[in-house]
Amino acid sequence: MKHDKIERNLGLMLVLTMLAISAGGLVEIVPLFFIKDTVESVKTADGKEMVHPYSPLELRGRDIYIREGCYLCHSQMIRPFRDEALRYGHYSLAAESKYDHPFQWGSKRTGPDLARVGGKYSNDWHVQHLTAPRSMVPESVMPNYPWLIKTPLDTSDIGLRMAALRVTGVPYSKGEAEYQQNVKTFGEDVAKNLRIENAEANLRAQAASGNYDNNPSDVTEMDALVAYLQVLGTMVDFKQFDDDYFVKFR
């Protein structure tokens, strides 16, 4: 009888539904804040963190990846199942997404998962695939993105983008003290690319040295997107995990 009264009272049912959802969400989420290994600490032999924030060029590439809706057809989350491991490699670690705002786990795979795509193909392959996908993968349903290689990359606000992420906890550095802390955490080679004051210069330097679009004289959106794709899955040395993980599949 009481249940019948609740169902007939729309306002009361809405309030009780929200309370039930809130309680369930809290039960699932709150404990994660108190579990120290929710986000794994993945370190090198000398104690440096393997997973680090994106460089300015990679960060702009990620922005373009989101702008073009790539996440709608490609996930970046390998699940801990045998078929996933055999195709893509080690399952995704929480630590790999710790500096992603928002994360790119995705919910659909029209195309393959991209969590480990970095280094799998050459820069030339990515440029051609993004320009004309079916020239590389005949069965692909991916749209063409020919404008990326023709469009100069807007680098004017890269410092502001990094500063905004710094507010969310991403350790881009302002000043010498924060830079030195990043040197201790990530090593000097990584830390120098995390300095907000040098963001535009670092972006252009990486684009020129990486030659992602085969045109070192200019920085295009293709440079940025390929740089982003080439870093995915390359930060963690999974050799230290493989023995324990793959033993269950033998």
Score class of each variant (00 low, 15 high):
Lys36Ser: 03
Tyr172Ala: 09
Gly233Cys: 05
Asp189Gln: 05
Arg87Glu: 00
Ser209Glu: 13
Pro102Gly: 08
Leu86Lys: 12
His52Gln: 07
Pro146Arg: 00
Glu84Pro: 15
Tyr91Thr: 00
Leu16Asn: 14
Tyr71Gly: 07
Glu139Pro: 02
Tyr228Leu: 03
Leu57Met: 09
Leu12Pro: 14
Glu200Trp: 00
Ser55His: 08
Asp83Gln: 00
Glu96Tyr: 14
Asp244Gln: 08
Arg134Glu: 09
Asp213Lys: 12
Lys239Ile: 10
Leu225Ile: 02
Met50Pro: 15
Met136Gln: 07
Trp105Val: 09
Ala132Pro: 14
Arg116Ala: 04
Phe241Gln: 09
Val39Thr: 13
Ser75Ala: 07
Ser173Glu: 06
Gln181Met: 05
Ala45Gln: 15
Val190Met: 00
Ile35Asn: 14
Gly169Val: 11
Ala224Val: 12
Asp113Ser: 08
Arg60Cys: 13
Val226Met: 02
Val137Tyr: 11
Leu148Met: 01
Ala45Arg: 04
Ile78Arg: 04
Asn193Cys: 01
Pro56Tyr: 11
Glu40Pro: 01
Asp237Ala: 00
Gly47Gln: 09
Pro146Asp: 08
Ser140Pro: 15
Met50Cys: 03
Met136Pro: 15
Val247Asn: 15
Gly159Phe: 11
Gly159His: 13
Thr44Gln: 01
Arg195Ile: 03
Gly11Ile: 02
Asn9Ile: 11
Met50Gln: 10
Ser22Trp: 13
Leu203Asp: 13
Val51Trp: 09
Arg60Phe: 14
Glu188Pro: 14
Phe241Gly: 09
Asp189Leu: 01
Val42Phe: 10
Thr185Leu: 04
Leu114Pro: 15
Asp242Ser: 04
Leu232Gln: 12
Ile21Thr: 14
Leu130Thr: 12
Ile149Gly: 06
Arg116Phe: 06
Ile29Lys: 14
Ile149Val: 02
Leu10Trp: 03
Val183Phe: 08
Gly119Ala: 05
Glu96Asn: 00
Leu32Ser: 09
Asp244His: 02
Ser107Gly: 02
Phe249Glu: 14
Ala208Gln: 05
Ile35Ser: 12
Lys98Cys: 03
Leu14Gln: 07
Leu165Met: 02
Glu49Cys: 08
Cys73Glu: 10
His52Trp: 08
Lys98Glu: 04
Gly169Met: 05
Lys98Ser: 08
Val42Gln: 08
Asp213Gln: 07
Ser92His: 11
Phe246Tyr: 08
Asp37Thr: 00
Asn215Glu: 06
Leu32Arg: 02
Tyr71Trp: 12
Leu10Ile: 13
Leu72Asn: 00
Lys108Phe: 15
